[in-house]
Nucleic acid binder design. Structure first.
Lengths: 150, 150
DNA sequence: TTCGAATATTACGTATACGAATTAAATTGT
DNA sequence: ACAATTTAATTCGTATACGTAATATTCGAA
């Protein structure tokens, strides 16, 4: 599996693709003039553009992030004027995350930049191959969640 | 590309697989009793087990890491008694990285743990699908390096 | 109703990686 | 030989994500 060269190891490839795509998204965003959205925000924004007002933990669940990871992410998003924490009147332990005006306004430019960047990165890959790849990655993800793995 | 659900977005899948596999490797290492090797060390160790004595920058090149990323990585590996920095007699700017006894001894157990973990995570995936996936990831990686992307 | 378990979020320390700027040494062009 | 450039490594600040522990509430059972 890790045999031969590193370029033959799927883990190496996945790591590098993750970092490379993240870096390209950052760059693509900057080129499109979007300066307050970092790659890690995309998942949360994507969810909030359809369902406004979610709890941090729920937002994390959709994006596959631990609650403790959400704290810092939301801190940065709040600092960058994209979301706002509001105390939940029903449950004083919880809070609700809502988009600010800037967060709402970001949808067009961000989607545009993300789509453009991903299209460029996945250019020249046959649809069937992309489907196969997604299926393989989903299988690995499932295996990661099995007992004894996580 | 990012359309429908997040699970349909290759970037989401790649991110989660990267984090999931990393976490599984950490766990797998611990289960095998390897306590001083963190997932990020694997690439560097893998290289050093065949070519002893490389420069930090060269080691980074093989693993796809920036020189500035190597500094911290090597600091941690040195702290964990796996490698040792030696001044390069030929070039006083440079240093040479060499395995310690512990670093050499780690080969068996680490390879065992890594192989076992990756085999479990990629279980049930047809060889042809895995090959397709690797080819797709390599293509994306190439696209990431194109002008205007990086 | 009050005490103990469950839940929501945060705090804190650590790992991982990058880019920009810095330092030191080697190299090159004149 | 020496100034200008290039190269090797590090430092520093930032982003990203995790796990464990702490904090604050809510909820359920006795």
């Amino acid at each position: 599996m890790i045999s031969r060269s590193l370029k033959d190891c799927p883990y190496y490839l996945v790591s590098r693709v993750y970092l490379g795509v993240t870096s390209a998204l950052k760059k693509g965003m900057a080129v499109s003039g979007v300066n307050n959205v970092k790659p890690a925000y995309i998942g949360a924004l994507f969810t909030l553009w359809r369902e406004k007002s979610l709890r941090p933990s729920e937002l994390g669940r959709r994006a596959g992030l631990e609650p403790s990871s959400m704290t810092g992410l939301l801190d940065r998003m709040e600092r960058d004027n994209l979301v706002k924490r509001t105390p939940d009147p029903q449950d004083r332990r919880a809070s609700r995350i809502e988009l600010t005006c800037d967060g709402i306004a970001a949808e067009g430019p961000v989607m545009e930049a993300v789509t453009h960047t991903l299209d460029a990165l996945f250019a020249g890959i046959p649809d069937t191959d992309l489907e196969t790849t997604k299926r393989v990655l989903r299988t690995v993800l499932t295996n990661c969640s099995k007992e004894g793995m996580k």
